[in-house]
Structures are given as C-alpha cells and as structure tokens.
C-alpha cells in the first residue's frame, strides 16, 4: 500500500511539475514528459501485469487531468510500458548508459505515437514540429535519467518502492 501511495504521489508530481517547474526550465519550449519517464521506471522494476496496469492507469489519469483527447496517453503509456518490458528483458538494467538509451528510445516511440494519434484526432501538427518535439522530449527525458535514475533505482531495489511479495508482508 505504501508503495502504491508513493507511486501515486510521484504520478501526481509528474503531472504538476512539467507545467510549473519545467515550464521555467523549458528548453526552446520543450519540456520533459515526466509521466512517461515514471512509467518507464515502473515498467523496468515491476512485473508485466503490474507495469501494464500502471501504464494504462497513469495514462488515463493524465488524460483526465489534461481534460481532452481521452485515450491518447492511456494507449501511449501502455505501449511505453510494453516496450520497456520488452527492451528491459533483453538489456541489462543495471547498466546506466543502456538505461539512458532505453529512455531515449522509448520516449521517442511514445512521443511519435502521440504525434500519430494527434493526426488521427484531427490535429494539424507539421512534420517539423513533431520531429522537434519528439527529439527534444526524448533528449530531455534521457538527460533527466542522469539525475533521477540512481536514487529511484535504489528505492525500487532496496527502499520504499521495493516490491514486496505477500509472504514478505
């Protein structure tokens, strides 16, 4: 329960911070996608069903928080969780550089999917805009790995975010 609450609080922060703190730290208008980064971290450190559930749930919460295009982030973050699970099963997650690369790639796919879904929803984004946003957000998320991954990985492995089986509780 404590793990769930902490993750829910982190999810809340990832919704709040991009529009506030990272609005001030925006880089040519580019902000990181913190919810996507959190889903990647959760998927790296959870079992498949839990990872997919967090991806779908976090996406749905973000959709409702944003208040439009409901389903866009639900689908995207589910796919992000799925892709992270796939890559994580093949890449060694203790390798810091690989984690940076994983976050960059998965974020890029997630942002591309958002761009694709935006087209489907009738949004008129230019290819140049999509490329700029995809590349910018992916780089920003990858840079944030350097700052956030060490402590969140430690927390998932040994700290408050560590998954405890029922027999351990």
């Amino acid at each position: 329960m404590r793990r769930f609450l902490i993750l829910a609080f982190l999810l809340f922060l990832t919704l709040v911070l991009p529009g506030t703190l990272f609005h001030l730290l925006a880089w040519s208008g580019i902000k990181p996608d913190l919810t996507m980064l959190l889903v990647i971290y959760i998927a790296q450190h959870s079992r498949p069903a839990s990872a997919l559930a967090w991806g779908l749930g976090a996406g749905l919460v973000e959709d409702l928080y944003l208040g439009h295009f409901v389903g866009m982030y639900s689908l995207t973050l589910t796919v992000v969780a799925l892709l992270t699970l796939y890559l994580n099963s093949r890449w060694y997650r203790e390798n810091f550089i690989l984690t940076v690369l994983l976050v960059f790639l998965v974020t890029a796919v997630g942002q591309l999917l958002i761009g694709f879904l935006g087209f489907g929803a009738g949004l008129s984004w230019s290819a140049g805009d999509i490329f700029r946003v995809v590349l910018g957000v992916s780089v920003y998320n990858a840079v944030l790995v350097l700052v956030t991954y060490p402590w969140i990985h430690r927390s998932f492995m040994q700290g408050w975010l560590r998954y405890q089986a029922k027999y351990e509780r």
Binding site: D63, G67, H68, F69, V70, G71, M72, S74, L75, L117, G120, A121, G122
Partner: peptide, 9 residues
C-alpha cells in the same frame, strides 16, 4: 480510443 479522442477533442 480513437472514438474517445474524437469525442473529447
């Protein structure tokens, strides 16, 4: 999802 996105655009 596409229908939902259309309806909540």
């Amino acid at each position: 999802i596409l229908v939902s996105m259309r309806l909540t655009g």
